[in-house]
Design a binder for these strands. Sequence first.
DNA 1: AGGCTTTGCGCAAAGGCTTGCGCAAAGCAC
DNA 2: GTGCTTTGCGCAAGCCTTTGCGCAAAGCCT
Lengths: 336, 336
Amino acid sequence: MVTMTEVAQAAGVSVSTVSHVVNGTRLVAPKTRERVVRAMRVLGYEHHPIARSLAAGSNRTIGLALTAASNPYWVELIQGIDGEATRAGLNLIIVDTRDDARHESVAIANLLAHHVEGLVIAPADGWRDLTLPLLRDRPVPYVVVDRIDPELRVDQVGVENEASTAAIVDHLISRGHRRIGLVAGIPGLSTSAERLRGYHLAHQRAGLAVDPALIVDGASTSDGGRKGTFALLDLPDPPTAVFAANNNMTIGTLAALKAAGIKVPRDLAVAAFDDFAWADLFSPGLTTVAQPSTAIGARAVQLLLRRMHDPDAPPQTVRLPAEIIHRESCGCPAKP
Amino acid sequence: MVTMTEVAQAAGVSVSTVSHVVNGTRLVAPKTRERVVRAMRVLGYEHHPIARSLAAGSNRTIGLALTAASNPYWVELIQGIDGEATRAGLNLIIVDTRDDARHESVAIANLLAHHVEGLVIAPADGWRDLTLPLLRDRPVPYVVVDRIDPELRVDQVGVENEASTAAIVDHLISRGHRRIGLVAGIPGLSTSAERLRGYHLAHQRAGLAVDPALIVDGASTSDGGRKGTFALLDLPDPPTAVFAANNNMTIGTLAALKAAGIKVPRDLAVAAFDDFAWADLFSPGLTTVAQPSTAIGARAVQLLLRRMHDPDAPPQTVRLPAEIIHRESCGCPAKP
DNA sequence: AGGCTTTGCGCAAAGGCTTGCGCAAAGCAC
DNA sequence: GTGCTTTGCGCAAGCCTTTGCGCAAAGCCT
């Protein structure tokens, strides 16, 4: 391995000069710099980030903690975060929380042990008791993505769950539906609560009462969605439309409808939160709420950078708008 | 921050003893150890992995280079890799190659600059010219996943593309199909070539000639799959069955069929490489080849560990079997 | 009791880089 | 030509651990 010392010797300067050339930390006379650069090239010098981290007390690394569950949403979020981090010259380390607060807290402890300079977290249910204390104890800045907690005074980025859910339920109501089933996510997640509020809001705006029987727990999973949907179908007075509150539950819902031999949208209208690559190919095409996942990730890093730079800035909660993609499952005619 | 030195002072021992207690590197008398442990707890000592890396000349980190394109296959692969790496006490850094050899080479240079101790790579088309030279120059061990190159004497892990493709084409032939379209992936990828060989192999075994017009380029993307499928439908003598050689192209193929108003499997049978979470819900259910993605990732790390431990071990190519999941799109009757 | 092996620890160098401080040379104004 | 300000660099301490070497104490043998 080629060290700065060797480069310095070859160039006939001191290591500090080499360091300053490498980092642009201070003025170096053009010809001196040239000699150093040449020596680096000739010797094949490569910077040693570990040593730099130790010496500079900084490692330009941020951590990302989320569930690695197979969900396209996370892929795009990671892309957004990675892209923005790279742009800022930050490295990214990803750990899997398995969407479990226990695992989450050890994963994050791990990240902290690696002295990351910032964190992006998609917290699991129960994180306030297990994970949050870890963070509160130290000066490491962090931002929360996806699961926004309005009671927390921290930087957060997510999607407009309530407004977009309300909008899509509005749409179903406007098409004449009066009994709209909701397959809701894990109660402990703020996203679930917000989407539920959106559901209520739309009813309220339309002057409709909400029948609690129409709200079933889908546990945020495909299987939960399937079971919840069956429960809806078994009601004495079943819904004429169903809204599945995330992509996994949507899969379960569709599976249940298929199994029950129900035709969409003839027998039942369907709409869902989270878009799919294949939403188009379904017959009928699925009407969905598409999140700007990549943008959410990018924004999270921007907030993190701001906080790393200015630890005392007021906490900021950013809500990005979702896009409603009208296809045919809601009962609308197909568009060319 | 609490350093070893402080712990050592508090415990009345030297830093070396603290280090040995922390790492279990040598015998420490029980009561001495006890004093040290207590001091660590009292002071809230935390290990400093960066300093350790520098001192030990090792950072227990491996790199993963693949495309972060939104493909569920990668998610599961990453899970497999991460799980196995964690088990081995290794950290994982992921970089995005964008499936482009140019980007790949800079991404990997980046990883190398971080002095990772091993690499897992899902190489992009053209990597032999751009990326491989980077690796050849240095002693860093690496293993290739997914895209196996038989001419390379390196550790590789992938799926049995040829055999499983042949098996599924066999199946289509056995159901009476004589003109089977193939929507093939990027020609530069070995997976594409192998799946193509499997297609040929099945024909050969059945004593059928392959009509080259039935093989279209789907560019491994959804859009390419759509175009390729349209090309097949436009043939004077169109196929009676289509095999799409990866998940993205399958989406394109299904979109094309939907647009053309073709009923599956009545008008055309369909089978595809890569399983989907939603393959079941399609009407008809999609018959697919499911890869053991997680297992592939885990195996890759195992090979890597072996090579890190024994750099001169003979290179090994591992092929994991795929599972064919029979649903109805191939024309088989639905199973309960 | 004297010599020899264990057992347990400390010392100090090493690892590669950053950076505050201070010195020298160059540039400038008068 | 003198004195002052820039500009350019080097010195060396410091970041926190790891680890080879060697010393001392304790235990064993005869």
